[in-house]
């Protein structure tokens, strides 16, 4: 079927089989391989992207369901050389090791920060329930999400 997607501000017209998942379109047709696949039961969160600004596990959404919507992936966050505050925070806090969970973590974290302005550590830990990381033990991820949330706030008011 024909679908129209705007991905990272670029409009695409695609012809894909009905049962194609959003993650397959992103990784396959659009070669945006920053979005990862870590499971087959919708539980690891490696595939999280934003659809119309809200975080979505792209392995649970048909590409057709995103028809006409705006999709943002990890590749679309940085503004040229300048990183998104959440990306910056992940680097500064050593919140990644192998990097495989990282794109999904960052996309989930941004949504979390946008939804609850006064984010606490406990809320971050709960909010990341759908994202599994096997490397970091989460401590630095939690730190990064809090730092990134502050960074986003500062960027919004400046």
């Amino acid at each position: 079927m024909q679908i129209r997607l705007t991905v990272n501000n670029t409009a695409h017209q695609l012809d894909v089989p009905d049962n194609t998942l959003l993650v397959e379109v992103l990784r396959g047709e659009l070669a945006l391989t920053g979005t990862h696949i870590g499971c087959d039961t919708s539980q690891c969160g490696a595939c999280v992207v934003h659809v119309d600004g809200r975080s979505v596990k792209s392995c649970t959404m048909l590409a057709a369901q995103a028809d006409g919507q705006e999709v943002t992936t990890i590749e679309g966050l940085a503004d040229g050389e300048s990183l998104h505050p959440m990306q910056e925070a992940f680097k500064n806090c050593h919140a990644l090791q192998c990097g495989f969970c990282t794109p999904g973590m960052i996309m989930s974290a941004i949504d979390l920060a946008q939804r609850s302005p006064g984010l606490t550590e406990a809320e971050v830990r709960r909010g990341l329930e759908g994202n599994i990381c096997r490397c970091t033990g989460y401590q630095n991820i939690v730190k990064a999400v809090l730092a990134g949330a502050s960074g986003m706030k500062a960027a919004a008011t400046s």
């Binding site: 990862h36 990306q87 680097k91």
Partner: peptide
């Protein structure tokens, strides 16, 4: 020292096996 490798991972341009076409 902050990690050199991080930039490619946080911007989604790491290159894992399944990313290769």
């Amino acid at each position: 020292v902050l990690r050199k490798e991080d930039r490619r991972f946080i911007t989604g341009v790491g290159r894992y096996t399944d990313d290769i076409q």
